[in-house]
Each structure stands twice: as structure tokens, then as C-alpha cells.
Nucleic acid binder design. Structure first.
Length: 720
DNA sequence: ACCCTGACTTGTTTCCAGTGGA
DNA sequence: TCCACTGGAAACAAGTCAGGGT
């Protein structure tokens, strides 16, 4: 499986080289340079224009845009100053992050007194006031088993309705729901210490304290994983692990290299074997238990409907697995407790925290869609529990997204003409904006927000491209003005592409790159907020990502028109998949070739070979039958007919297999799912029924649930 | 004007259970 | 009946973007 770096249509490289080695010097280097820049108080472009005047226009440019210092640099400088982690006196232990610190502080400040839910100012608030000015949600002890919930304002006590009526804009004024009731999250099961005979080894066998042991098991479970060999991972893990150790353990265990987790690792392997080997009844029981939990916690009532919750289980503790070259991989992801949790629901009734605990907060914010949130300790960002894609709240939003893309369709010509015009602008920032937009449109690049250096893997999108990420070839492989892109995008997936561009774009790129270091920003006068502000002016609701949606959907529609033949259904589905694949390639949706890929390919190949043999056998038989018939002067020999049929049948089967093989091979490194789920207007697919392709052949059950809105609107002659 | 962060979408990988062929 | 394979779901990381505070 290793070593296969084949390309897909000249575009995407794969997996192995996905996590490109990056020099870490990068950051410090950059920092220095920025300091220098700001010291001199002038930008690259002023400097550069003093050099040779290759381009007349440049002269004008420099004056026009001298106005601003670079935003980007400013941020960076600022951020760096703030960065130093001031350790809070209350947080001696490991779980430290700046954001967390803030929220901890808040917690400390305002809830020592009494558990009192916070009220926030929303529309809801006004309503609440009308009802009962100072209603405090008291931890209701009411174990409402059966319908004794029938107190006054319980509008949702009527049986939940069956189906939603799809409306693009249901509530005005940002209200997302009017009634919301749920059971709260399901917490990760508490840690169960290992049996006493399973020990950790360091010079000698030793039993760890439960706290240290738990963290050790996280590592032990991953022993087979490549992560555990990476230096950063090991370093971060060890640092966080030591924080959980007792003083003696800390004194003793000082070197991760000397740690031996194999015994623990084997114990877990045995456990999973045992789980596999369980009897049918046991498995059945587990399944039923899960179903019970799902039924109890996996649903909520929103505006009279019972809706499925997407992730009602709190993420269990473990070691953080960042993607790509992540500086924080291996850090301990801490266990979430009830006092970390914010509950969001209607003000009438809220879920109970587990006995002996309390929620961090209960609020009633109907302008947001989440039911539960907590702050995670690695990046200090907020995690949410939200509804399933099949829910109304997600469906309507999805629908809206495609409607925006369709509006773009109406004015895309105008916008394209506009940015082409802007390539000639006198202002550098406008040229940069126009070229970036061209990339976003033509290549479906992501916007490319700035990221916190050192906090996340070094990845880029359009606006954050650096000089080192592109190469210019005035001439390449017989094509003029070729740009070679090579960078790591979202999830550290490599984007590699060579595209011919228009001359003006090419010249502009040369201009942007002049006098810059490889790690300078290509578009130093541009960031996503500037770009999006501009787009907003061009069309209401237009942002960079709308182009991805638009181009994906329009590509599907076009490809379908070209490809769909009047053949049988399997052939049509293949056509659909081809169209889907074209989109996935456009969006650079890659996947690691499945571990079993080679093998399954081989299996298919042996099948094909067998079919071939069978075919030649059949042909031979046909031949001899023919000869035989000739001798016997039997014009309409039955034998010949049947043999002929057999040959035909086998040929067909062979073809089918070969098609399957190509389909699979073409799909080796391409993931269709992402585009299917997020970029392709489902109504285009639903409308395929006009060619006799039933929706069931395109979408599985969950997908049909997610796209219920689209199926509902079902319209044969739907045009994106 | 800038910057931060909350909310929500998009993305890949991992896990698991069901399926169909030997 | 077993077992290898596969597709789908779950998990959760990593984006985008808007709005509000400074």
C-alpha cells in the first residue's frame, strides 16, 4: 500500500505524501522578518517599486495602496504578544488553555453564590418576562415518569407532529426555535481501573495510581498507531501524563522511552477479542441497551416535533489526534464533567444533571441551534451537541445554502467580468482580490482564513497562500502561463495542481511575488474578511464558499447532461458516479486508499481473469459447435444457439466486472461522500428520476433522511 | 478598524455491523 | 457457518464566516 503516488487526472497526490514534512524554522524566521518590516514601517511593495521597473503599472500601484500597513502582519505581531500562557492560580493542573481560563474565571466569579441559571437577552427573554418575570429554573426534583408534565405553557405536550412543512424562512428575526426540550448529554463512562495483574513496566513492574493509569491506557491503546512514534506526540503526551502522576510516580518515571505499555496493550487487545467472541445473546443485549439510550437521549422535542440529535454523547477523554503536522498532538483531552456543561433549552424545563452534580449553566437561547456545549481544553474552543442533518433546523439551512448558490448562478457572469476587469486595476489590493477570486472560482479553493501559528498545523487556503506554494512557468508542456500549486489545505490534505491561467493573471502573480521571501503571503493585501465584504457587495449572501457550492452543483448538472445515456440503470448509475467524481476532483476530496484496497482489487482481477478464461472456453466451444454443425449441415443447430447465448452472457458479465474495476480504480483516492453530502444540490439528484434512476439508487436511507426536503419538493424538470 | 470568538459547516478517519461468497 | 469485505455511521478535527466588543 505504500509507495503508490499515482495521480488522479494530474491533480491529486496521495496519502503518503499528504503529511508533507515541514521545516519548523518557518515560524521564527517569519517572526523576525515581521518585526523588521514593522520597524521600517513600510510594505514590501514600496520597497519593491524602488527596484527595477519591469512593469509600468507598478509605479501607479505603489501610490494607490500606500495607505495601509498590512493587516496580516499586525495580527500576527499582536497575537504573539498575547500568547504567553499566564498560568492561573486556580489551575494548577494540566487542563490549561487561554479560553478555558476565561470561562473558569467567569464561573468562579459568578456562581459561588447559588446555582442560578443565566438569562440572556433574546427575544425569548421578553416573552419570558411576560410570563413570569423572575422565573428561576429550580433544579426540579420532579421525576416525571409519565405525563404529569402538563403544566400551563406546555405547548409541546401534544403529540409531536409527523412531518415538517419545508419553509425556507420559518422564523424571522433570527429565532431558530420556539420550544426545545431534551434530556441532556450522555457522559463517557467513568474510568475502570485495570485488573491488578495488568501492570505497567518501568525498570520493573509497577501499579500506577488510577489517575496516571487512565492516561497511560490512552497511550497503550494507541501503541500500534503511527502517532505514538512521532516526537511531538510523545513529548506532549508525556508532559500531560506527568501532570496526572503522584509525586512518587513523577519522581520515578522520567523517560518515556523506558516506559513499557505492552502488557496493557495486550490486555486491551484481548478485551476486544473477547468482545468479538461474545455470544449472540450478549451482543443482542448490548444492542438493545444502546437502542434504549438512543431512544432516551438521542432525541429532543423541537417545536412540536421529535428530532434526532446528532452527537448526544460527550466526547470521552483521550489523547488529542490532530491531523497533519499538529503541534498539539498527543495532549490529554480531558474528561468532561457536568460542571463543564452548558445546557440550552426552553425555559420551562431543563434536563437534570447526574445526581450530586450540577450544570455549569442553563440558558434559553433560541437564536442558536445547539442543545449542549462545553469548552474543550486543547484549543479552548467550544464544542456543541446539535441536531441530526435530518432535522428541520439543518434541512432548512441546507436548502438556503443551495438557494444562495442558485442566485450566484444568475449573476456569476457579471461577477466574472468584474474580476477580470479588476486584474487591470490601479490598486494592488483590488488586483489581489480579483486574482484570488479567480482561483476560488476556477479552482474551487477554500477561502483561507488566517490561523494561529503554533496552535494548529500549518495549512492554507486561497487568501493565506504563500509565495512558496506556487510556481510560475511561462511555458510548460506546450501550454503557456502555467501555475503550479502545491500546498497543504484543510486537514493537511495536499493540493497539487498545474493549471494554465490567463496571461493577465500570470503577470499579476509575478508582480505579487516580486521581492518576497518564500514564506511571505502571496496576497499580502487581502484576507478573507476583505474578500467576503467585497463579495457581499456583489451579491447578497455571497461569500467565498458559495463558489464551491455553485461550481460543484453546476458541474454535476452539466456532467449529467453529457454522460447520461439511455442505457440500463447500472450504466446510468455509473454515469452518475462519474459526474460525482468530477466534482470530487474539482473540490480535491481525497481519501487514503482503503487498507484493503489492493486486496479487493486483486480479488476483482482474479474474478475478471476467471471470466476471461470462461469466455475463451465458451468461445472455443462455440467454435467447435459451429464446426460440428457445419459437418452435420445443421443450419440451426441448437447447440450453436445456446453456445452463442452463453458467450454473449459471459461477455456481458465480463464487461460489468471490468466497469466495476474501473469504477473502483478511479475511486481509489477520491472520496465521493463529502461532495455528495455537502456540495451537490440534492434536487439535481432527485430529478434524475426523469431518466429512470430512482432516488434509492443514489441516496441511502440516512441520505434520504437528510435530503427529505429535496425529495419532498421533487420535481422532474428541476434545474439548478 | 481591528480582532476575537461563537456558531455552524465541511472533512477525514475509525469503528462496526451487516452481507454475501466459500 | 464462517469469515473477509464493505458501506455506512460515529467520532471528532478543522474549516468558514458573522457579529460584537474594544
Amino acid at each position: 500500500m505504500s509507495g503508490d503516488h499515482s495521480h488522479i487526472e494530474g491533480q491529486s497526490h496521495k496519502h503518503k505524501d499528504k503529511y508533507k514534512e515541514k521545516e519548523h524554522k518557518h515560524k521564527d524566521h517569519k517572526k523576525d522578518k515581521e518585526r523588521e518590516k514593522s520597524k521600517h514601517g513600510n510594505s514590501d511593495h514600496k520597497d519593491s517599486s524602488d527596484k527595477k521597473h519591469r512593469d509600468k503599472e507598478k509605479e501607479k500601484l505603489k501610490h494607490k495602496d500606500g495607505s495601509t500597513d498590512k493587516y496580516k502582519d499586525k495580527h500576527k505581531e499582536k497575537r504573539k504578544e498575547e500568547k504567553p500562557h499566564v498560568k492561573s492560580e486556580l489551575e494548577d493542573n494540566s487542563y490549561y488553555s487561554p479560553k478555558l481560563e476565561k470561562s473558569l474565571k467567569r464561573e468562579r466569579d459568578d456562581n459561588d453564590s447559588e446555582f442560578k441559571p443565566k438569562k440572556i437577552k433574546t427575544e425569548n427573554d421578553k416573552k419570558a418576562k411576560k410570563r413570569k418575570p423572575d422565573e428561576v429554573i429550580k433544579p426540579t426534583k420532579t421525576k416525571n415518569k409519565k405525563g404529569e408534565v402538563a403544566d400551563g405553557k406546555k405547548k409541546a405536550k401534544k403529540e409531536p407532529e409527523e412531518k415538517w412543512k419545508w419553509e425556507e424562512e420559518r422564523y424571522t428575526d433570527g429565532v431558530k426555535w420556539k420550544f426545545l426540550e431534551h434530556k441532556g448529554p450522555v457522559f463517557a463512562p467513568p474510568y475502570e481501573p485495570l485488573p491488578s495483574n495488568v501492570k505497567f513496566y518501568y525498570d520493573k513492574h509497577m501499579k500506577l495510581s488510577p489517575e496516571a493509569e487512565e492516561v497511560a491506557t490512552f497511550f497503550a491503546k494507541m501503541l500500534d498507531h503511527e502517532y505514538t512514534t512521532k516526537e511531538i506526540f510523545r513529548k506532549n503526551f508525556f508532559k500531560d501524563w506527568r501532570k496526572e502522576m503522584t509525586a512518587e510516580e513523577k519522581a520515578k518515571i522520567t523517560d518515556l522511552k523506558k516506559c513499557n505499555f505492552t502488557e496493557m496493550n495486550e490486555y486491551f487487545k484481548a478485551q476486544s477479542e473477547a468482545r468479538k467472541a461474545m455470544s449472540k445473546e450478549q451482543k443482542q443485549k448490548i444492542k438493545e441497551d444502546n437502542e434504549r439510550i438512543l431512544q432516551e437521549y438521542g432525541f429532543c422535542i423541537m417545536d412540536n416535533h421529535r428530532e434526532r440529535i446528532a452527537n448526544f454523547r460527550i466526547e470521552p477523554p483521550g489523547l488529542f489526534r490532530g491531523r497533519g503536522d499538529h503541534p498539539k498532538m498527543g495532549m490529554l483531552k480531558r474528561r468532561i464533567r457536568p460542571q463543564d456543561i452548558i445546557i440550552n433549552c426552553s425555559d420551562s424545563k431543563h434536563p437534570e444533571p447526574p445526581p450530586g452534580t450540577r450544570w455549569k449553566e442553563v440558558r434559553h437561547d433560541n437564536k442558536v441551534t445547539w442543545l449542549v456545549s462545553w469548552t474543550e481544553n486543547i484549543q479552548g474552543s467550544i464544542k456543541y451537541i446539535m441536531l441530526n442533518p435530518s432535522s428541520r433546523i439543518k434541512g432548512e439551512k441546507d436548502w438556503q445554502k443551495y438557494e444562495t448558490a442558485r442566485r450566484l448562478k444568475k449573476c456569476v457572469d457579471r461577477i466574472r467580468a468584474q474580476y477580470r476587469e479588476d486584474w487591470k486595476s490601479k490598486e494592488m489590493r483590488i488586483r489581489q482580490r480579483a486574482v484570488a477570486l479567480y482561483f476560488i472560482d476556477k479552482l474551487a479553493l477554500r477561502a483561507g482564513n488566517e490561523k494561529e501559528e503554533g496552535e494548529t498545523a500549518d495549512t492554507v487556503g486561497c487568501c493565506s497562500l504563500r509565495v512558496e506554494h506556487i510556481k510560475l512557468y511561462p511555458e510548460n508542456d506546450g501550454q503557456e502561463y502555467v501555475v503550479e500549486f502545491d500546498f497543504l489545505g484543510k486537514d493537511s490534505i495536499r493540493y497539487y495542481n498545474k493549471v494554465p491561467v490567463e496571461k493577465r493573471v500570470f503577470k499579476n502573480l509575478q508582480l505579487f511575488m516580486e521581492n518576497k521571501e518564500p514564506d511571505d503571503d502571496l496576497f499580502d493585501r487581502l484576507n478573507t474578511s476583505v474578500l467576503n465584504k467585497h463579495l457581499q457587495e456583489l451579491m447578497d449572501g455571497l461569500t467565498a464558499k458559495v463558489f464551491r457550492t455553485y461550481n460543484a452543483s453546476i458541474t454535476l448538472q452539466q456532467q449529467l447532461k453529457e454522460l447520461t445515456s439511455d442505457e440500463n440503470i447500472p450504466a446510468k448509475i455509473l454515469s452518475y458516479n462519474r459526474a460525482n467524481r468530477a466534482v470530487a476532483i474539482l473540490c480535491n476530496h481525497q481519501r487514503a486508499p482503503p487498507k484493503t484496497f489492493e486486496k479487493s482489487m486483486q480479488n476483482l482481477q482474479t474474478k475478471i481473469d476467471a471470466k476471461r478464461d470462461q469466455l475463451s472456453d465458451a468461445k472455443r466451444e462455440l467454435k467447435s459447435a459451429k464446426a460440428d454443425a457445419k459437418i452435420r449441415r445443421d443450419e440451426k443447430s441448437k447447440a450453436v444457439e445456446t453456445k452463442k447465448k452463453a458467450v454473449q452472457r459471459i461477455e456481458e458479465q465480463l464487461m460489468k466486472l471490468e466497469v466495476q474495476a474501473t469504477d473502483r480504480e478511479e475511486n481509489k483516492q477520491i472520496a465521493l461522500g463529502t461532495s455528495k453530502l455537502n456540495y451537490l444540490d440534492p434536487r439535481i439528484s432527485v430529478a434524475c428520476k426523469k431518466w429512470g434512476i430512482p432516488v434509492e439508487k443514489i441516496y441511502n436511507k440516512t441520505q434520504r433522511e437528510k435530503f427529505a426536503w429535496a425529495i419532498d419538493m421533487a420535481d422532474d424538470d428541476y434545474e439548478f
